[in-house]
Design a protein around this nucleic acid. Structure first.
Lengths: 248, 248
DNA sequence: CTGCATCCGCTTCGATACTG
DNA sequence: CAGTATCGAAGCGGATGCAG
């Protein structure tokens, strides 16, 4: 990408990670260190030359590293540097901002269970007292382990079959709706576990970030808001207006 | 931008704000509501048709609004919606991640004093007990007022000439170096104020976020880090390797 | 003067094919 | 498996024009 050529921390950050696909490459490496082919499979639609160029640029910039895996696997593995791992907060915040965009559901989009880790991190902010609970999530070809507790909620991509208090299995959008507390009459994704665990689970999802509390956290508003008389601050829309077309 | 076509909060957010220039438009509107011409001046290098298209897309997506300013000014003013203002956190976090990229200084880049507000927000995280102090910053054609106190640090673009405890005037990079605590032998930007204020100022900049504490905040690392034997976690580099060229 | 639209050379992207 | 090479299509950057 052509540099913006600005002395600004934000635009210089965008010079590094502002290209198309770049943030998504970082997302995959935040979920797990990956080989080239893993990344290619995890990023449906990326051209192979683009992936190669992004990886090269990110490595030159010091965001990622590649390691030749020696004996048994014999493959090159890409992973984030410490600096690159600092993007974790940024991606989670951006995902949190984008959570309302999940409301329309999957539609024709691609879906991989692993992508839920960001939605989940967005849903359950860092420090809060969550009930102690492990949840196994099986969705769209991936298996995740959510670990809630006093320290917060962590979610990792895991190998299948481990033990957990609760198991949820279903399509990503159903799982997400369940986790975000949209337990209407019928739970959209089947949840299994014993009664005590189910109760703690119910407690957990009642703590999900609802996006209606966010109005207080507003940025600087230099011009007076009284430009329009009788202005009443509107609540954050759960679902922003969708006039643009998706999947062009 | 073509949609990524993924059921993922992050990539759907990028579908909205992932285009080139888009985040920078949001940056300007976070600093202050602006007219078309203001934005065009504040974004050196953007093509006029691109700015128009970005504004249209952002408005359709519900990120910004435009208001016809009626009587005296007779101009259209663009501003963020509440949802759009929710990007504040994201941009500050990204700016914080990009702060090390400011180390090389301005060079041939454009510079506007207003852009310092993000560097400053990145430097002084939200809740901490800062000394009570106001600082007037005059840099690269803009004037800012920094207000520190128990509630945190806020910085706003202001009209020239107001009162403050401290005044800093200089090029953006010198001002930034001063604020980030790089007070070597000679302060790079002239700082004026009475002794008591100067002492509180010295206190303030000693609290600036140094990027060396950030190593603890790491993302999920699914593969064992012991893949490379004798791995010692490297500290976050103050200045990431710069092999890529700027200002293509 | 503000707020764009149009045109054009150039770069980047997307898709497929091909190679060590 | 891990990329490079190629080529049409789309997007960007810069200049210019023009209506309210």
């Amino acid at each position: 990408m052509k540099s913006y050529g600005e002395f600004c921390a934000l635009s210089r950050a965008l010079d590094v990670v502002g290209d198309r696909w770049t943030i998504l490459v970082v997302r995959e490496l935040l979920i797990a260190p990956s080989r080239y082919t893993d990344l290619h499979k995890a990023l449906p639609g990326i051209a192979t030359n683009l992936l190669a160029q992004r990886l090269r640029t990110l490595e030159e910039a010091g965001v990622i590293t590649s390691e030749e895996q020696p004996a048994p696997v014999s493959a090159q593995v890409y992973m984030l540097t410490d600096w690159g791992r600092g993007l974790h907060t940024v991606l989670v915040d951006l995902a949190r901002w984008g959570v309302p965009l999940l409301a329309p559901g999957i539609g024709d989009d691609h879906s991989q269970g692993r992508w839920l880790v960001f939605a989940i991190m967005a849903l359950f902010p860092e420090r809060a007292d969550y009930p102690s609970l492990t949840v196994r999530i099986i969705a769209d070809g991936d298996e995740l382990l959510l670990t809630a507790g006093a320290g917060g909620v962590q979610t990792t991509l895991t190998s299948p079959g481990g033990p957990a208090d609760i198991t949820i299995e279903g399509r990503s959008d159903d799982v997400f709706r369940t986790l975000s507390g949209e337990l209407t009459d019928k739970p959209t994704a089947p949840v299994s576990g014993d009664d005590a665990a189910l109760q703690r689970f119910s407690q957990l999802i009642s703590l999900a970030y609802t996006h209606d509390l966010d109005v207080a956290a507003l940025g600087p508003r230099t011009l007076t808001a009284s430009a329009s008389p009788g202005h009443t601050p509107a609540p954050v829309p759960r679902q922003p207006p969708r006039t643009t077309q998706r999947r062009g």
